[in-house]
Each structure stands twice: as C-alpha cells, then as structure tokens.
C-alpha cells in the first residue's frame, strides 16, 4: 500500500478491480455462490451488501476516535448486525418475493468477512469521506463479480438474463447443472482461473518491459 494513506478516489477505484473482493481477496464467498443462479437475486444481494458495507463503514469511521482496541471487533459486529437487520426488514417489506427467494442469505451478510475486514483495515482509521468511497468501491467490485457469475449461470442454465428470455429452449438445452450448487463452484473456478491468467499475463508483460528498459 502507499506510504501516505490512499485518497478517497484511489480507494474507490481500488475496490472495483485491482482489489476486487471476490477475485482478488476471496472474501464473502458464501452468499456469492448461493444467490448467483440468476441476475435478479444476485443484484438484490449486491445492493443489500453494499448498503450494509457503506453504512457500517460510515458509522465506524464516525466513532473511530472512541474505539477501545480490545472491544473494537465487538463494536464492528454490533454495527454490522444492526444494519443487516434493517436491510432484511426493508427487503421483506418492499420486495417480499425476492426476500423469500434469498431466504437465509441476507442475514448471512453478517458473516461476510469483507465487511468486517473493511471496517478493520479502512474505516476505523480513515475519515468518513475516505471510508465512504472505500465502501462504494468495494460494493461496486462485489456487484461486478456477482454479475459476472450470475450472467454465466443464468444464460447457460435458464437461457435468460434478468428473467428476460434470450435463448429459446429449442436452440439451447438449458444446462440445469448451472442453476444448481455444483454449477456455482465450477463457474467460479473457471472465472477465477481466467482472472488469475489475465493477472499473470499483465505481470509478465510488466516484468518483460522493465527488463528491457
């Protein structure tokens, strides 16, 4: 990391691709695999996680001066659990069917290592503005990762995207396995491999450039 703390803008951009929570940090995998069998639940989950992440970051940053070192994890957990409850209730009130479909995975956002780690690494040490930008960047990165897997799984598994039918059943025999648990693991393994391969190529190109120079 930089010697001076990264600015808000740097944190924002960081969270989207370079330190993408899923592909780079491998945090928050549980809900990731469970809700990505279609785009609609995946995006709802991304929105809920984003809300909790940003709210928790801002709250922790606001009280960062008052945190006692050995009780800080307790405070983080309390804050995150509260905001997750709020998100869950709002979903149950306004998007009842989606809330039923997502089921226990919304409260499982509490266990999402991503949010606690952002609180610990960034929010408890930085100003509200930087924490907010970090939260937004990480949420966008998370949403992007969810969208990538959900797109593959939904198109291959049901021939639709966001519920809109793209590939009619006559042309494409829907790969049921994509919508089921094993499909999640397989797609994520392949996409992770692709992300690694791309990262390695960039590193090799950069190394080749510096050795030429």
């Amino acid at each position: 990391m930089a010697h001076e703390s990264p600015t808000a803008l740097e944190r924002f951009i960081n969270g989207i691709l370079p330190e993408n929570p899923i592909y780079r940090q491998l945090l928050g995998l549980c809900p990731f695999l469970a809700v990505t069998n279609a785009m609609a639940p995946a995006m709802t989950m991304a929105a809920a996680t984003g809300f909790v992440l940003i709210a928790a970051n801002v709250m922790v940053s606001a009280i960062r001066g008052l945190l006692k070192p050995h009780l800080r994890i307790l405070v983080f957990t309390l804050t995150i659990a509260t905001f997750v409850t709020i998100a869950d209730k709002v979903l149950a009130a306004y998007l009842y069917d989606m809330s039923k479909q997502l089921g226990p995975y919304i409260p499982l956002i509490i266990c999402n290592c991503l949010i606690i780690s952002r609180c610990e690494i960034c929010a408890s040490k930085q100003s509200i503005k930087v924490a907010f930008a970090d939260g937004v960047g990480m949420s966008l990165g998370f949403a992007l990762a969810l969208a990538s897997i959900a797109t593959v799984r939904e198109i291959l598994g049901s021939g639709s995207w966001f519920g809109v039918e793209l590939l009619s059943p006559e042309f494409w025999p829907a790969w049921g396995i994509m919508v089921l648990p094993p499909g999640a693991f397989l797609v994520m393994g392949v996409l992770l491999g692709a992300a690694e391969w791309y990262g390695n190529r960039k590193k090799a190109a950069a190394a080749a450039q510096t050795s030429e120079a």
Binding site: I63, L66, L67, K68, L71, L74, V75, L78, T79, T82, T85, I86
Partner: peptide, 13 residues
C-alpha cells in the same frame, strides 16, 4: 461505548 451503541441500535431497530 458498547452499551451506548447497543441502546442506540436497539432503539433504531
């Protein structure tokens, strides 16, 4: 702080 937050969050919920 924890007690205060607990009361605050409880009220919010």
């Amino acid at each position: 702080l924890v007690i205060l937050l607990a009361l605050l969050y409880g009220g919010g919920l």
